[in-house]
């Protein structure tokens, strides 16, 4: 397959990754025999890795690496999770290729996972620290949606700062079954604990208000 990132795009990504503080690891799950966008996702991660030496990539097989599948609660492929420099999973995951507009939430997750300060206000951090029940946030996106990366980045930042929270970007076209299950026909659609729903790119305090209802 030809390179996904041309010279100009690589240059922009390199600049966006420059603020990285520490190493991060992306653990990608694919399948022997391939899957819809598995190959492209693996290639994207591999090309991104070449642009900053603080980025590590591990590729696992959904059918063979059962322990990791269980550990990271992987349900389908392609899915990847991001680990911090201590190889700790912080609940940040991507289901499907983060191309199109989602390149922005992808790069944002890498940079903040590496330890860059998210710059959130202390009042927000205080509210976030009080979330003590397990929270699963699914953010359904399309790659052509300009409002979606904001919603994904917000969900991921909540996960990075509270170990009870997991947040997934889900590319609705690749994960059609899941999209149909959650009746997704407009994005960004945010589903919290498979129960509460939000549509649109909301600021972090609006997310928190929903989480506080749980």
């Amino acid at each position: 397959m030809a390179n996904l990132l041309n010279e100009e795009v690589s240059k922009q990504i390199k600049e966006a990754l420059a603020p990285m503080q520490n190493e991060i690891t992306m653990v990608l799950f694919t399948k022997e025999g391939g899957c819809n966008t598995c190959e492209e996702t693996e290639q994207l991660l591999s090309e991104i890795k070449e642009l900053n030496d603080k980025i590590l990539v591990e590729v696992k097989d959904f059918d063979k690496d059962k322990e990791d599948v269980k550990k990271y609660k992987i349900t389908d492929v392609p899915t990847f999770v991001m680990l911090d420099d201590k190889k700790q999973y912080k609940g940040v995951r991507f289901q499907g290729i983060p191309a199109g507009h989602e390149i922005n939430s992808f790069l944002s997750a890498i940079v903040f996972m590496s330890g860059l300060d998210l710059g959130l206000d202390s009042k927000v951090l205080d509210r976030l620290a009080k979330i003590d029940k397990p929270v699963d946030i699914k953010v359904f996106v399309t790659l052509s949606c300009p409002h979606c990366p904001g919603a994904v980045a917000t969900a991921h930042s909540l996960a990075m700062l509270n170990e009870n929270i997991e947040a997934s970007m889900i590319e609705a076209q690749t994960f059609q079954e899941l999209s149909v299950k959650h009746k997704v026909s407009g994005v960004p659609k945010i589903v919290i604990n498979d129960e509460y729903e939000l549509v649109g790119n909301h600021p972090i305090d609006a997310f928190l208000t929903e989480l506080e209802k749980i």
């Binding site: 052509s144 949606c145 979606c148 026909s185 407009g186 994005v187 960004p188």
Partner: peptide, 16 residues
């Protein structure tokens, strides 16, 4: 029927 067929953002929702 918002997001059950009715949409206001073609770029976002056209793939559906």
């Amino acid at each position: 029927f918002i997001n059950k067929g009715v949409t206001y953002c073609a770029t976002c929702d056209a793939p559906f």
